[in-house]
């Protein structure tokens, strides 16, 4: 899940460069045209144009139907509160869906939960991943062995291991964590399940699972980053007898800062979109039955979307779309801020 995000964000940095390149290319071509019209060049172009059509057609057709059209359509639907997907009737234009979402207490609780998950789990998991990476990098024996163990959570099924965590944090006395707590004289906590989960307990389980699940990718990225750092910096530090802590804060962290920023963005997006982990831990109702205690931003969208899919209620589709557009704007804003911070702070 997080990795999905990771894939997307890498290219953000490139997109800027890419547009710049296009700009210069267009002006180059204009200059060429203005100069001499090269006949062979023109012929080559036509030939390639035919080949390009063949090569690109499958990709572009699929993307047009399942990527471009849905983006535009979701925007549209969000402005037509009575949209009916069965008949494709749009009804009248209005902002009612946005008003409904923004006035809904559940929506703001979902945003609050999501924000809390982001604020707690992202810095914590990045810090742990950094520490593990630095230690991992300092050893020679067993490095590969530890690396494989830390990577294992990456190749697990998110829902399946959510169920495993639900068993470990079972609310009953026979759960692993409750057994350990009872052994030291603390009474059982209702960590998971569908009823009577204290807010802090549920959030704790979500955080532990998120960290467990996300460390693998972070360690992998940090480790390949740290191994790319020039050894001379460390040798210089050693000659000066620099304390380890200063080496960490003054050399490792600054030189890893592009990776750290990248991981921050991707894991924030991942945390922002938590859904399946919550569902596997607390069931489809996302905690405490009708209260939806641990509902997330994406969970809110899917709650209405699921009503369209499974209960055949067409009119909530517009509301789900409006919530999706709001989520999109939030993500855009966060990424924008981070890109700006990237320009200011990151040391290359």
């Amino acid at each position: 899940m997080e990795h999905e995000e990771a894939k997307k964000t890498t290219f953000w940095a490139n997109i800027g460069n890419f547009f710049k390149k296009i700009g210069s290319k267009i002006s180059e071509k204009a200059a060429k045209k203005a100069g001499s019209s090269n006949k062979t060049q023109m012929l080559e172009w036509k030939k390639d144009g035919w080949k390009a059509t063949v090569c690109l057609a499958p990709a572009l057709i699929i993307l047009a139907v399942f990527t471009f059209y849905p983006i535009l359509n979701t925007f549209l639907v969000s402005f037509f509160p009575d949209y009916n997907y069965v008949t494709d009737e749009f009804g009248s234009f209005g902002f009612d869906s946005y008003a409904l979402v923004l006035q809904d207490a559940t929506f703001w609780r979902a945003m609050g939960n999501t924000a809390l998950m982001v604020i707690v789990s992202v810095p914590l998991s990045i810090l742990i991943a950094l520490i593990i990476t630095v230690l991992l990098n300092s050893i020679k024996k067993l490095q590969g062995f530890f690396q494989i163990i830390f990577f294992l959570p990456y190749v697990t099924n998110g829902i399946a291991f959510g169920l495993v965590f639900a068993t470990i944090f079972s609310p009953m006395d026979y759960g692993l964590v409750n057994t350990l707590l009872n052994a030291v004289g603390i009474s059982s906590v209702g960590w998971t399940g569908t009823t009577n989960i204290p807010y802090w307990a549920g959030l704790f389980v979500i955080t532990v699972y998120a960290i467990w699940n996300g460390l693998a990718f972070k360690i992998l990225v940090f480790l390949s980053g740290i191994q790319g750092i020039d050894k001379q910096y460390y040798q210089a530090a050693q000659v000066d007898a620099t304390p380890r802590w200063r080496v960490f804060t003054k050399i490792t962290v600054p030189l890893l800062s592009p990776m750290i920023l990248y991981i921050t963005i991707t894991s924030m997006m991942g945390a922002f979109k938590s859904y399946s982990s919550v569902v596997s831990l607390f069931g489809e109702s996302m905690g405490n039955g009708q209260n939806e205690t641990f509902i997330t931003a994406v969970g809110y969208i899917y709650k209405y979307f699921n009503r369209v899919v499974h209960d055949n209620i067409s009119w909530v589709l517009s509301r789900a779309s409006a919530a999706a557009v709001i989520l999109f704007l939030f993500i855009l804003a966060i990424t924008g801020i981070q890109m700006w911070a990237n320009k200011k702070k990151v040391h290359y």
Partner: peptide, 30 residues
């Protein structure tokens, strides 16, 4: 390959990567 509009199409594709999947799933379902 060299063809007209190559970079424009490619740029258009890249911009869709910023859009979260939640934006697409509803319309794709319909």
């Amino acid at each position: 390959l060299e063809f007209k509009g190559r970079d424009v199409i490619f740029a258009l594709l890249l911009t869709t990567m910023m859009v979260p999947g939640e934006m697409m799933i509803m319309t794709n379902f319909t």
